[in-house]
């Protein structure tokens, strides 16, 4: 392993590690919002099924909840592009 690494150009290693870092940043940032959006939408569906006459209000609030939760994942997405070796 070390032997192989020693033969490489150090720039390649940095480049590869940067790519790995980008993947980890976005993947990590997507975990929480993924769970969060699931909870938001799941509960909204429960509410709509229980009270179909309130569906319009629940839908508006659901989109708001999704928008706030999703922002964290999108910060991660943008950060993944900003990271450079």
């Amino acid at each position: 392993m070390l032997y192989v690494l020693a033969e490489q150009d150090p720039g390649e290693l940095v480049e590869g590690l940067t790519a790995v870092g980008r993947g980890i940043v976005y993947g990590g940032a997507a975990i929480g919002p993924g769970i969060g959006i699931g909870i938001v939408v799941g509960n909204a569906i429960t509410a709509m099924a229980r009270q179909p006459e309130a569906a319009g209000m629940v839908r508006t609030t659901m989109f708001l909840g999704i928008a706030f939760t999703e922002a964290l994942a999108l910060f991660g997405f943008v950060l993944a592009f900003i990271i450079s070796g």
């Binding site: 928008a67 706030f68 999703e70 922002a71 999108l74 910060f75 997405f77 943008v78």
Partner: peptide
């Protein structure tokens, strides 16, 4: 920040 980044990142993605 989140208002602009949300729109930007969604469209870029």
């Amino acid at each position: 920040l989140s208002l602009s980044v949300r729109l930007f990142a969604n469209m870029l993605a």
